[in-house]
């Protein structure tokens, strides 16, 4: 939108202005709502409407995060959880995409294994908890495994349906040019699945956080999930709330990274 604004009619300028105001109102209301909720939370504890021992409060959360920082453990816990989440996320996405490609390639393989995938998808992964502890011990390995377990099947199902939805007419076109199956995959199936890949990443980010925090509930000695469990056990709800707030920020950050990736990668589609 770098066109010379002087070329526009008065009406169009007014339209643009209205749009800008519209956007500004939405943004202001978003921030305003957050501020209002924080203020209400803070005031309700100060004025004695609620017990800060049970509900914590924004100021107590800030001071808890501050003291974690002074103890030097804040970034340690964040780092542990981030690493587990990222490693699990990347493994789930990579393995999931490869399996989905194999299923696209071999119809027999897909038809034989599909019921297994459906059942594994329905299985609550937390049920694997004891097995994971026995197989992988109580370290980060177990948590990464849990993260992969939660995300993998979703990635497979999401990508497989994207691959299978490739426009049959475009496949016909490539075949009429004499394309091999590998060429069809490389030139058509993979690039046309890019938007689906991005939307899968958005889902997988959420799954990875579920997996890593669930894993930390099960076995960990460090990380944000560990802080939450520990805080709950010793009734330090300030700690629980603080870790939760940090999680919110991190999860949002990871989501926005994916959105950024989308802006870079997905530029040209027919829609």
């Amino acid at each position: 939108m770098k066109k010379d604004q002087k070329n526009y009619s008065k009406e169009h300028l007014l339209f643009l202005k209205k749009r800008r105001i519209d956007l500004a109102i939405v943004r202001a209301l978003r921030v305003g709502l957050l501020l209002f909720l924080l203020l209400f939370w803070e005031l309700s504890t100060r004025l004695g409407w609620s017990d800060p021992f049970l509900t914590s409060s924004p100021s107590r959360i800030l001071s808890t995060i501050g003291s974690l920082y002074k103890e030097g453990t804040l970034f340690y816990h964040i780092g542990v959880t981030l690493l587990e989440t990222f490693v699990g996320f990347f493994i789930a996405v990579a393995v999931g995409c490869i399996v989905a490609l194999a299923f696209w390639w071999s119809d027999l393989c897909r038809r034989v294994l599909e019921p297994y995938i459906v059942v594994l998808n329905a299985l609550p992964k937390i049920a694997l908890g004891p097995l994971i502890i026995i197989w992988f011990g109580t370290g980060s390995k177990a948590i990464v495994f849990m993260t992969v377990a939660v995300g993998l099947i979703v990635v497979i199902m999401h990508m497989l349906s994207a691959f299978l939805e490739t426009d049959p007419n475009k496949i016909l076109l490539l075949r009429s040019m004499g394309a091999s199956k590998f060429q069809i995959l490389k030139k058509l199936v993979i690039p046309s699945s890019l938007p689906a890949f991005i939307s899968m990443l958005k889902v997988a980010v959420g799954m990875a956080w579920i997996g890593s925090i669930m894993g930390e509930y099960l076995v960990s000695r460090a990380g944000l999930g560990y802080l939450i469990v520990y805080g709950g056990q010793v009734f330090k709800l300030d700690l629980v709330m603080s870790a939760t707030v940090i999680l919110c920020v991190l999860a949002a950050g990871m989501y926005f990274l994916v959105v950024l990736l989308e802006k870079i990668l997905v530029k040209n589609t027919d829609n």
Partner: peptide, 26 residues
């Protein structure tokens, strides 16, 4: 050479790269 009902141009390729497609494949 096969021409279908719809143009079936690949939206992620420029026109030049679309036109090159059969050459690439072959």
């Amino acid at each position: 050479g096969y021409m279908l009902q719809r143009d079936e141009l690949f939206p992620w390729r420029t026109i030049e790269k679309n036109i090159r497609l059969p050459l690439e494949v072959q």
